[in-house]
Design a protein around this nucleic acid. Structure first.
Lengths: 190, 190, 190, 190
DNA sequence: GATGAATGAGGTTTCATTCAT
DNA sequence: AATGAATGAAACCTCATTCAT
C-alpha cells in the first residue's frame, strides 16, 4: 500500500508503437532463452520499465503470442520469393528460393520450439506459413523442362528443404541450397 | 562364490533401473506439460520421493535431456522399417514406411517443442534421428521401377512426409500416407 | 472591481470542491473494496485523472483519512435525533432514535473495518461520534417515567443498541429497535 | 527453471504445530499492520522461511482466516468468566467480568478491523463470540438484589461495556470497569 | 492545472534443490 | 539409500506516485 518515488521517464509512445518495440525486442530473447525468458529481460531489451510491458500487453504470455503472430506473417516471405529474377536459370532461381525457405523454416521452427508451441496461433483463415503458391510461381516459367507439374515439384522441393533444414532432424546443420536443388533436379528434370 | 563383477552389476542395476523408470514416467508429463513440468509431478508419476530424483540425476535439466536422448534412439524405428514385409508391392511398403515416419516426426517434433529444445542433445557421433538407410532398404528391391536411385528417392520421401506432417507447418494436420506416396510415385516411377 | 479576497476565494473554491468530490466518490468504493481500493478506481469514480488526486491530497492514505473524517461528523446524526417529534410517546421516540443509532453504528463500523482503521482519525478535540447529548434530549421530556436519570438511560440505550448491532458481535444481524427499547424500558420504567 | 542452493534448515515439525506457530506469530502482526501485513513479516516472526508458510496454508488469506478463527474461540473467555470467585460481592464479580469482556471486545474489535472483515468467519453453528450465558451465570447468584432478571441484566452490562470500550466509538479509551458497573447497578439494583 | 503513460519497488507464490531423519 | 519438509531465489504482476506534455 505504501510505495516510494521513482526516477526517470521515457516519452509516452503510441500503444501500437510500444507493442511493436516490445515484440521486436522479445524475438531474439525468445529464440535464445525459450520460455525461461523473463519480463525483466524483455524490459531491459526494450529499454523500458518492467511495468510498462503490462500497459501494452495483459501478461507475458500475450507478448509471446504476439511475437509468434508477427513471425508467422507470410507476406514478406512470399514477396521475397516473387521478387526472384525470372530471367535467371531455373537452377539459380530454385537455389535462391531454397535459401529463403531454409531461413523461414529455421526461424519458425526454432521459434515454435522455443515458445513451447506446437503450431502457429490458431486462426482458421490464416494462410499456411509456407504456402506453396509463391514457390510454384518460381518454378512455373520452366515447367517444360520438368517431368512433373509445378505444384508437385514445389511440394517436393519444400519437403526436401524442410527435412534437411529443420534443426530437430538435420542434426549436422542444414544442407546447402545447391545440394538440395541438385537432388530434386536430378530426379525430375527431363 | 560371488564375483566382484557380479556384485558390481547387482549394485549398479537398481540405479540404471531407477533412471529408466524416471525417464519413462517423465516422457508423457513432458509432452503434456512442457516446461511447466515440475519435479513434484515426476516424483509422483515415478512413485518415488522428490529428493530421490536427485540421486539418479544431477538436476531436473538432466532428466529432460535423458528423456529426449531416449526418444531419439533410432533403433526401434529402424527395426520397424526393416520388418516391413518385403513381398508386398512397393506402394504398400512405402505407405507403411511413411506412417512410421510420420509417427516419429510427430512424436519427436512434439517432444522437442515441449522440452523447449531446438534439436536433440548434441552428441557428435550420434546417428541422425531419421537416418535414411532403413528407408532405402525398403525401396531398394524395386529400384528398377524408379527413374532415380533409392538414396535420392528416400530423401524425397522423407522430405515430403516431414513437410506434410510437422505440426508447425502442416497446419491442417498431416496428410495421409497414401497421398504422400502417390505424389512421390507420380513423379519418379518409370 | 474584483477584490483580492474575492479572487482568492474564487481560486480556492475549486480545490475544496475537488476534494469534496473525491471524498464523495471514494466512500462507496472504500466500503465495497476496503483496502484493495486503488487510485485508479477513485479517479474513475470521481471522473478525473489519476494524477489529479495528488493535487488535492498528498497521497492515497490522506484520501481515506478524509473520507473517514467526513463520515465521523456527528452533526447530521445529532440533527436527526433532535428533529424527532417530541409529542410522540417515549417508546416511539426511542425506537426512532435506536434506528438512527443503528444506522450510524453500522455505517461507521463497516467504514472503519473497510479502511483497516481501529478508530476515527486521532483529533483530540473531536466530539465522540455518538455523543450522548442528543440522545439524552430525546429522553429528557419523559424523565419522570424512569427510575434512572436521562444520562444513564442514554448510556444504557446506546450500549444495548451498539452491542446488538455491531456486525462483529451481533452475529445474527441487528435486533429490531422495538426489541431493544423493550429490554431497556422493562428494566428502567417505573 | 534454474535455481540455486540454499543454506540451513529447521527441524521438520508436525503440520498442526507449524500452523499453530504461524498463527501465533501472525496475530500481533495483524493487529499492528492490518492487511498491509506481508508474508515476509510472518515468516520472520515465525522464524521460518517464507516458502514454509505455503506448506501449512494455501495462501496468505488463509493464514489471516485461521488467526481470526482462533481468536473467536469463546471457550477460554467463558471459562474465565466461570472461574470468577462466586463468594465475592456482586459488584466485585461484575467488575472482573467487565474487564474480561473489555479485553475480548478490544481484541476482537481490533482484529476484525485490522483484518478488514465485518464479522467472524461465517460458520452457522458457531456460538456468538460474546455469548451471554456465562455472564448470566456470574449474575445469577445475586438475582434477588436486582429489579430485572439476569438475562436482561447481562445484556445491559454487555451493551454498556461494549459501547464504552470499542475503539471506534469510545474515542477517549475505554471506561473503567468500576464506572461501568456503577452505571448499571445504580439503575437496576433494588 | 489536468492528464495519463511510465516507473519500479515490492508483494505473493512457485519450485528446484538440500539435508536431517 | 530414500524421504519429504524446509529453504529462498526469483518470477510475474500491481499500483501509488511522478512528471512531460
Amino acid at each position: 500500500m505504501i510505495s516510494t518515488a521513482h526516477r526517470r521517464r521515457a516519452a509516452a509512445l503510441p500503444v501500437a508503437e510500444r507493442r511493436r518495440r516490445i515484440i521486436e525486442a522479445t524475438l531474439p530473447l525468445l529464440l535464445e532463452h525459450g520460455t525461461d525468458l523473463t519480463t525483466r529481460q524483455i524490459a531491459d531489451a526494450a529499454g523500458i520499465a518492467e511495468g510498462t510491458i503490462f500497459r501494452a500487453f495483459p501478461d507475458k504470455e500475450s507478448v509471446i503470442d504476439a511475437v509468434i503472430e508477427a513471425a508467422f506473417d507470410p507476406t514478406p516471405f512470399e514477396a521475397a520469393l516473387d521478387s526472384i529474377d525470372a530471367s535467371a536459370p531455373l537452377e539459380t532461381r530454385l537455389e535462391v528460393a531454397v535459401e529463403l525457405l531454409q531461413r523461414r523454416v529455421e526461424r519458425l521452427g526454432e521459434l515454435m520450439t522455443a515458445a513451447g508451441r506446437v503450431g502457429p496461433p490458431t486462426d482458421p483463415d490464416r494462410r499456411p506459413p509456407t504456402s506453396l503458391g509463391a514457390l510454384e510461381r518460381v518454378i512455373a516459367p520452366d515447367a517444360a523442362q520438368l517431368r512433373i507439374d509445378p505444384p508437385t515439384c514445389a511440394r517436393l522441393l519444400r519437403g526436401l528443404t524442410f527435412a534437411s533444414t529443420h534443426p530437430a532432424f538435420a542434426t549436422d546443420g542444414p544442407e546447402t541450397p545447391a545440394a538440395i536443388v541438385a537432388v530434386l533436379l536430378d530426379g525430375v528434370r527431363c
